[in-house]
Deep mutational scan, measured.
Amino acid sequence: TETRTFDSEEEAKKAQKEAEKQGRTVTITRRDDRWEVRFD
């Protein structure tokens, strides 16, 4: 599991799309003013 933090939802969604192309499961969580993206 890898976790990355982004400043914008746009960036988080971009990372999510990339990871899903690779067949990974992605979870996006809102953390205050940041977006946390978890790759499984």
Rank of each mutant, 00 (worst) to 15 (best):
T1D: 13
T1Q: 12
T1K: 10
T1Y: 15
T1N: 12
T1G: 11
T1R: 10
T1W: 15
T1H: 14
T1I: 13
E2T: 13
E2H: 13
E2F: 03
E2K: 11
E2L: 07
E2G: 10
E2M: 07
E2I: 14
E2S: 12
T3V: 14
T3E: 08
T3P: 09
T3I: 14
T3W: 06
T3M: 11
R4D: 07
R4I: 15
R4L: 15
R4A: 11
R4N: 08
R4Q: 15
R4Y: 08
R4H: 14
T5I: 15
T5Q: 11
T5M: 15
T5W: 15
T5K: 07
T5Y: 15
T5V: 15
T5P: 04
T5F: 15
T5C: 08
T5S: 13
F6Y: 13
F6G: 01
F6K: 02
F6N: 01
F6V: 06
F6D: 01
F6L: 04
F6T: 03
F6H: 03
F6S: 02
D7I: 05
D7T: 05
D7V: 06
D7A: 07
D7W: 10
S8G: 04
S8E: 06
S8R: 04
S8L: 04
S8W: 02
S8I: 03
S8K: 06
S8A: 04
S8D: 09
S8M: 03
S8T: 15
S8P: 01
E9S: 03
E9N: 02
E9R: 00
E9H: 05
E9F: 13
E9W: 10
E9M: 07
E9G: 01
E9T: 01
E9Q: 05
E10W: 09
E10K: 05
E10G: 06
E10P: 04
E10Y: 08
E10R: 04
E10L: 07
E10D: 10
E10C: 13
E11V: 03
E11L: 07
E11N: 05
E11G: 07
E11A: 09
E11I: 04
E11P: 01
E11M: 07
E11D: 13
A12P: 00
A12M: 05
A12V: 06
A12K: 00
A12S: 03
A12Q: 01
A12L: 04
A12H: 00
A12E: 00
K13C: 12
K13N: 10
K13S: 08
K13P: 00
K13E: 10
K13Q: 12
K13G: 05
K13W: 06
K13R: 12
K14E: 14
K14D: 12
K14I: 13
K14Q: 15
K14P: 00
K14T: 12
K14F: 09
K14H: 14
K14N: 14
K14W: 08
K14M: 15
A15I: 11
A15G: 03
A15E: 07
A15Q: 07
A15K: 04
A15P: 00
Q16W: 07
Q16P: 01
Q16F: 12
Q16Y: 09
Q16S: 11
Q16M: 15
Q16I: 13
Q16H: 06
Q16A: 15
Q16V: 14
Q16D: 02
Q16L: 13
K17N: 10
K17P: 01
K17W: 11
K17V: 14
K17R: 13
K17H: 12
K17A: 15
K17M: 14
K17G: 10
E18Y: 04
E18H: 08
E18F: 04
E18L: 10
E18A: 10
E18S: 07
E18P: 01
E18I: 10
E18G: 05
E18C: 10
E18Q: 09
E18R: 07
E18N: 09
E18M: 10
A19N: 05
A19I: 08
A19T: 03
A19G: 10
A19E: 08
A19D: 04
A19M: 13
E20Q: 10
E20V: 09
E20H: 09
E20Y: 04
E20G: 06
E20R: 07
E20L: 12
E20P: 01
K21M: 14
K21I: 11
K21H: 11
K21Q: 14
K21A: 15
K21E: 13
K21P: 03
Q22V: 11
Q22N: 13
Q22G: 09
Q22P: 04
Q22C: 13
Q22H: 13
Q22R: 10
Q22D: 12
G23K: 04
G23R: 03
G23V: 02
G23I: 02
G23T: 02
G23P: 01
G23Q: 04
G23L: 04
G23A: 04
G23D: 04
R24Q: 14
R24G: 07
R24T: 08
R24V: 12
R24A: 10
R24N: 09
R24E: 08
R24H: 15
R24D: 12
T25Q: 11
T25W: 02
T25F: 03
T25A: 11
T25G: 09
T25S: 13
T25E: 10
V26H: 00
V26L: 00
V26C: 09
V26I: 06
V26Q: 00
V26M: 00
V26D: 02
V26T: 09
V26E: 02
V26K: 01
V26N: 01
V26W: 00
T27N: 06
T27P: 02
T27W: 00
T27I: 14
T27V: 13
T27Y: 00
T27S: 12
T27R: 08
T27K: 08
T27C: 06
I28M: 00
I28D: 02
I28R: 02
I28H: 00
I28S: 01
I28F: 00
I28L: 01
I28V: 12
I28N: 01
I28C: 05
T29W: 00
T29P: 01
T29E: 11
T29M: 03
T29L: 03
T29H: 07
T29D: 06
T29K: 06
R30K: 15
R30L: 11
R30E: 09
R30Y: 05
R30Q: 14
R31E: 08
R31W: 06
R31K: 15
R31H: 14
R31P: 03
R31N: 13
R31I: 15
R31S: 10
R31V: 15
R31Q: 12
R31Y: 08
D32G: 15
D32V: 05
D32K: 08
D32L: 06
D32S: 05
D32F: 03
D32T: 05
D32P: 03
D33E: 09
D33H: 06
D33V: 02
D33W: 00
D33K: 04
D33N: 10
D33M: 03
D33P: 03
D33Y: 00
D33T: 03
D33C: 05
R34H: 15
R34Q: 14
R34K: 15
R34W: 11
R34G: 15
R34P: 01
R34V: 10
R34E: 09
R34S: 12
R34N: 09
R34A: 12
R34L: 12
R34Y: 14
W35I: 03
W35G: 01
W35E: 02
W35R: 00
W35T: 01
E36S: 00
E36G: 00
E36M: 03
E36T: 02
E36A: 01
E36L: 05
E36Y: 04
V37P: 02
V37H: 00
V37W: 00
V37K: 00
V37M: 03
V37N: 01
V37G: 03
V37A: 05
V37T: 03
V37D: 02
V37Y: 00
R38P: 02
R38G: 07
R38T: 14
R38Y: 05
R38A: 11
R38I: 14
R38F: 07
R38S: 14
F39I: 15
F39Q: 06
F39V: 13
F39P: 05
F39E: 10
F39W: 11
F39G: 05
F39Y: 13
F39T: 09
F39N: 05
F39D: 09
F39S: 09
D40Q: 11
D40H: 10
D40P: 07
D40F: 05
D40G: 11
D40M: 09
D40L: 10
D40T: 10
D40W: 04
